[in-house]
Computed example of a mutant assay.
Amino acid sequence: MTGERYTIEIEPEVRLRLEDLPAHHYVIVEQKVDRLAENPTTLGEPYTRHLSGKLRELRFDLGGSAQGGTVVNHAEWKTRRHRKLLGEEVEENPEYDRLYEEAELAHDLGQLVYDRRTALGLSQTELAERCGMKQPQISRIEGGGTVPTIPLLRRLARALDAELTIELTPHTQAA
């Protein structure tokens, strides 16, 4: 975390759309909101866009169609993770935790691809051509909408003039 954790206010029409989401999409949205709450001034493209003052637009992909809504860094919505951080009682839900971790991994991989692509000065279309894909697929990966397979990660790494390194590290145990 980079400093104070912000709480998030969501516009009423966005809140209505959230209530209609399937559970696995809702978890993706919560993960993106947590990222914004923890990095309100530094979480940038492709996930948020600064509108004015403390107003940011949060963008995310839910299965191929870009979704989003305007949110303000200050007031109402507490994600499940935020409630835990505040010491509030939160029910155990292993499926939610699994989906949240998957959304976090998709976000992290997407950020790595975005950072490397922009460092090389490539457009999404140029990267897609380099690795035999279509631009919307690159957009979905960068937006954290999917976890790429290992063969796809290998193709992306080659197209980005990068090495793919996968590492397993043991969990540290508390003393």
Rank of each mutant, 00 (worst) to 15 (best):
E88R: 02
L105A: 11
C131M: 13
W77H: 15
G110D: 05
E126K: 07
M133D: 12
R116A: 11
S123C: 05
R116W: 10
T79W: 00
M133Q: 12
Q135E: 11
G132W: 02
T79G: 01
Q135N: 10
R117N: 13
H82W: 12
R116K: 13
T118V: 14
E102D: 10
Y114K: 02
V72Y: 05
R117S: 08
A106R: 11
D115H: 02
L112P: 11
L120S: 03
E102P: 02
L120E: 03
G110Y: 07
V72A: 13
E91V: 11
E104I: 10
G87C: 10
P94S: 06
V90D: 01
L86S: 13
Q135Y: 08
S123V: 14
A128E: 01
T118F: 04
G110M: 06
T79L: 07
R116V: 11
R83Y: 01
K134A: 14
L127T: 12
Q124V: 12
Y100L: 15
E88K: 00
Q111Y: 10
H74Y: 05
Q124F: 03
E89V: 11
V113Y: 00
L105W: 01
L85F: 14
P94D: 00
E95H: 05
T125I: 11
Y114H: 13
H74M: 10
T125K: 05
L112C: 06
G110Q: 09
N93T: 12
H82V: 15
Y100K: 00
L99D: 09
E101Q: 14
R116Y: 06
R116E: 13
R98F: 13
L86W: 02
L86K: 07
L109R: 03
V113D: 05
